[in-house]
Write a protein that binds this DNA or RNA. Structure first.
Lengths: 343, 343
DNA sequence: CTGTTAGCGCCTTCAT
DNA sequence: ATGAAGGCGCTAACAG
């Protein structure tokens, strides 16, 4: 195939080769009935011209773009790549494209706001993974009337569907695992207040502790912004607490990384001197020694469900179905970082 | 702001409020000169109407979309998220949107080919991270005449710019580090043949060995498809070799994960019984015990450069500048996984 | 500086 | 089943 800088072929070119009207050609490409002979003529012409429909010309006419925006938060972890890829994979099978933006608050105020870019490109909907500070951007999307689906958590007041882990359940299961192994002095690393997901995991942690009659000391709950360094510092504080917890639950990927690093740097042996259940870090769990026990989100399923809900909203824009709040179960992946305590 | 499902405002609406012609309004939005009074009138009307330019109507007219496609390979690692986000961040400041697709060969043959989706949406260019099997898709993009920039490696025969790590140098530096620590029996884990980047790292490994007068046994070079399980198996083979290497270089993220897991599962102590230099796994390096020494790619810089080159090509489409092949240096991040051998 | 006009590629009546 | 005509929102001539 020779390189050609010529502008792409259009219906007119096909018309020239086939003698058919533009309407007929359009019908062919939209799956309506066309005489077999004409169909063949069009296909032959299209092949020769290397024709490809112009999706946005069609968008202009139809008023929909078959494109959805994906808004990533200002911080990233490996979870987010799987989300994007999962969404894209699902939507592509429905002929929908994915425009990604990240809500990085870079220094450049000149830079176009991420959501504005999406709206200007007339995306049919937005799937957002909100950071604490991103919720207002999603609100403007809601306000112009396009469907919004959030992943991971739903900022309060946002009129949108959401798909997330069943966070309370996750916190419970992880904590119960610690309790089942005989631990009674428990610590937790969780995010700042406001983020639903982390709060839910903490709620589950507390509920499991309460149900087991375990009391949690105030300084055994460490809140930190979601990043590795804060997780590290928070874990260090836990390890230095007056009475050190025998087991810790880290409520998120970044906090888990920081926590493991803190344990190692303290010269403590994971799963021996201190027990730990991490979060979301399947790959990390493989390389720690001993392997980490982690609660794993069903990332692919979350992505797929978010895409499915979005697709359903787009298929039926007038639907008045009330918003979905889907909470999916994850699972505990057992490693050897939780020691059995025998009293 | 009240939710409105009404269709978005257009120039016509602004015209109705201001009495100005469409041309003047267009000029305003394209930064041409407009009387101050008219400018204010337009701004007032736009604010009232919550007007946002329709990017693809403009595209239709101008023949460019200010959108570039990013094509991800059929396998993913955390590296790729940073690439996408880095590219998006740069391009957004230039008003360019990013349409992502992954070249997943899912079972659904009905699903639209990733590159076809991009071309149908008339992206102005494509930045691709090719997997071994994805290069033909990029070739069709090249054949229709839009600029293509590859990241990580350039499939042979593809007429495109590329940005990558200086792989040979990386392999040399990592290997020299092992040699400097007294190791003379070296092993390497690298990818299948064909991928430039992995081959370059191996070349660097071999060059450093040769320069130091170190000979490498055939079975100390293990080739594996790029994924954790194969990396694990390959490392196991190295550890079981007739004469076991004292130090190993893992040439990629996934292979590194597999290698560390294999070491741990073998009951060997990292940095003691076996030395290891990993690749790209900054986060992993923090949680292994001891911390892993890794060669780190300048991911953000790679992403930015790829975006910058793409943007330059778009700014000057007629440029006949020959293709750029940019190779950037990374750096070795020292941990404690390489033991000093004293003979 | 502003307005008029035509048309980008496609889809949708409405005839035929 | 096909064709003719108009228009989606915007921009590029050109004229004033």
């Amino acid at each position: 195939m020779s390189k050609s800088t010529r502008s792409p072929a259009t219906y007119k070119d096909i018309q020239r080769l086939t003698g058919l009207s533009l309407a007929t050609i359009s019908k062919y490409y939209n799956g309506r009935n066309v005489l077999a002979s004409n169909r063949e003529a069009i296909e032959a012409a299209a092949a020769e011209l290397n024709y490809r429909p112009n999706a946005f010309a069609s968008s202009l006419r139809r008023g929909v773009t078959r494109t959805v925006g994906v808004l990533l938060p200002s911080f990233q972890n490996p979870f987010h790549l799987e989300i994007v890829v999962g969404i894209e994979k699902y939507l592509r099978t429905h002929g929908i494209g994915v425009l990604v933006t990240s809500n990085e608050q870079d220094g450049t105020p000149s830079s176009v706001n991420a959501v504005e870019l999406l709206l200007s490109r007339r995306v049919d909907g937005i799937i957002g993974v909100p950071a604490l500070s991103d919720s207002s951007a999603l609100a403007t999307a809601v306000s112009i009337g396009i469907p919004v689906v959030t992943v991971d958590w739903l900022p309060s007041g946002l009129d949108a569907d959401s798909v997330s882990l069943d966070n309370v359940q996750a916190g419970k299961v992880a904590t119960q695992h610690l309790i089942d192994h005989g631990h009674r002095t428990l610590g937790a690393l969780v995010g700042e207040e406001g983020m639903w997901s982390l709060q839910g995991r903490l709620d589950g942690f507390l509920a499991a502790a309460r149900a087991a009659g375990v009391t949690i000391a105030d300084d055994h709950i460490q809140r930190a912004p979601i990043n590795v360094d804060y997780g590290y510092a928070a874990m260090m504080r836990l390890l230095a607490a007056e009475t050190r917890p025998t087991a810790v639950f880290a409520g998120n990927y970044d906090l888990t990384v920081g926590a493991v690093a803190a344990v190692n740097d303290s010269g403590l042996r994971l799963g021996h001197d201190i027990s730990l259940v991490g979060f979301d870090s399947v790959e990390l769990a493989k390389v720690t020694s001993p392997k980490l026990t982690v609660y794993v989100q069903p990332v692919e399923q979350i992505a797929t469900e978010a895409a499915r809900i979005m697709n359903a909203r787009l298929d039926d824009p007038d639907s008045t179905t009330s918003h979905v709040m889907l909470e999916l179960p994850g699972h505990l992946q057992i490693g050897a970082s939780v020691r059995r305590l025998t009293d």
